[in-house]
Structure formats: C-alpha cells, structure tokens
Design a protein around this nucleic acid. Sequence first.
DNA 1: AAGCCGGGGAT
DNA 2: ATCCCAGGCTT
Length: 339
Amino acid sequence: MNSIKISDNVLNWYDANRRTLPWRYEQDQVADPYRVWLSEMMLQQTQVDTVIPYFQKFTAKWPTVNDLAKADLDDVLHLWQGLGYYARARNLHKCAKLIAEQFNGVFPTSPAELATLPGIGPYASAAIAAIAFNVPATVVDGNVARIVSRVFGFSAPIRHNQKHIYTAAESLTPCLRAGDYAQALMDIGSGICTPRSPKCNLCPLQQNCKAYKSGAPEAYPGRLEKPSIPTRYAVAFICINDKQMLLRKRTGQKMLQGLWELPGSDWYIDSLPELPEDIHEPYVDVKHTFSHFHLITRVMQVSEVDAEYLNGAELLCNIHDFDQLALSTLTKKLLQSQK
DNA sequence: AAGCCGGGGAT
DNA sequence: ATCCCAGGCTT
C-alpha cells in the first residue's frame, strides 16, 4: 500500500514536471528502441545536457540502427569525440552490427536478452526494456540508488549495498508506466535528490523518506573514502612540415583506443621522461585529469621526431583537416596550448 | 569485490 | 580542488 502510493507520487510529479528530451516519448507515442538504446549508451556516467548535442549529431547521421551498423568505427569515434569512455563507442558499433546482422534490425524486448549485448549491463538492460517497451523492470542507476538509500535510510555506501538497494527499488516499481516511472526517478535524482544539498521541499517522496526525517538527508548513502590519484608525466611533440602535422593512431592501448594523438613518450609515473640531448626547444606543460590519474604533458614544437616516439602508425595530417579525425580532449588541449 | 575507463558540471 | 554522474567490462 505504501509502495503504491510512492510510485503514484512519482508519476504525478513526472506528469507535472516532465522535461522534454530528444529521446523521450509521450505516453501516447510509440518509442523508437534505437533512440532509447542510443541515449542510454551515451548517458552512462554522463549528464543529460552533455549528451543532447551528441545524440542530435548521431541520429542525424545515422537515423536507424541499420545505418549505424554500416558506419565505419572511425566515423563513430569521430562523432563520439569529447564524450569520453570510448569503449562505449566501440561497444555501440559492435552492438549495432549485432542487431542488424543477427536480430534483423530489431531490438529484443526482455532485460535478459538485452543484457547479452555488448555495452548493455544490468542498468541499461532494465532501462531500455522499461522505457522502450514498458516492461516493468527495476531500473537502478546512481540516482535511483541514492534515492532508495535515502527513502529507506540505508547508510552503507552504494557499492557495498547493491543487493539491498535493488530489492528495495524492486518493491517500489509499478506495473504500469514503467518507462515514465524510471525516467521520473532519474529526473528526481539529478534535480532534487542531489548528492549535496537535496531540495527536499520539492520532493514527491519527502513524506516517505527516512533520510529526510533524520534531518541530514545528505548523509545518506555513506561515501567511500576516495583514494587520491597519482600524477603521470609525458612528452609530446608538435611536428609541422609544410602545413602537415605528424599524428599517430592509438592501437592496443585500453585508453582512448582508436583515437589520434601527437607522437610522444609513454605516460610515466613520478617524473618526466628523459629527452634526447639534442632537444632544447621551448615547451609548455599541460595538465589534464583522467578518471584515475593526472597527466602533465610537456609539449614542444620540433622539426623532426625520433622514431622511438612514433610507435609505428603515423599520419601526416593537413593542419586544416583535424576536424575529420577523432581526437581526445587531451590531444585537443595539447594542440590548443600552442596557439 | 575491486580496478579500469573520460570528461564535464556543480560546489 | 573535490565530488558526482542515466555503468560496463575485466581481473
């Protein structure tokens, strides 16, 4: 009885506060599973306002999953550049080809089948089933985990409490309007039940929330002590000859695989790598932070690059054609530092 | 269970 | 600077 009231409150809030988004459908519309899937892949660890322009570019260039399946991975990475977690783009392309070639271009509707596809895990399989097909799956992302922890008064860190959180979330999930309910919870999580300074006075769950009643809702759920991240160091070379610049493609590495970068050293812990003695060019140190380390790169312009920094594959790119290659934010930052 | 994988927004 | 995010994959 209590749980029914909670989902009704959530859905009523959604009807009054629903935000229009390019991948969001009205109750009387039939959702396009391709757009729902694409949005979910982009929204992983990424905020809505960041995703919107990427979603527009992708759907304009590839309106259907069959179009995306026929694309080159290089082009997919190019449109993905700047969005981060590039394994998502590689899995996106792999999944599109699977759907096109083995599923006749039709997405499966059950969470279990969806979860077998690359890039689709426990969260996304439930979200796609609920939002695209109205399957009453229990959708638990970071927002929902935080809301549930607060409503039920769970003080444990999310990472150590996932089973309890899922069970509690399941007990609240309505049979009807599963997609609207899931999206409503995520809107509430990102806009009201925020990690810091939650806006409890605007929350449709206020009267059901143990964390609110405790007087310190922001203390739920507990946080894990986050380890400080190390700093790595590298050297990179800008080598321009006759309006062409030397670039190389990242292959083999896990990070930024498939993207183009400046030739340079590996990323060393502790200190800058030794430079050849004949290099005395002026330089700029550029700092960039990845998810698990800082990187300080010493950038310098040189007239030639030693073979040890080329790493095989290389490309002389016309400096006016950068916008045709997939570059990471780091590489863009290094190039920008010289202007 | 814990580590790896980007980048940007909010504070 | 620090924390967080519409997580999944790997070990």
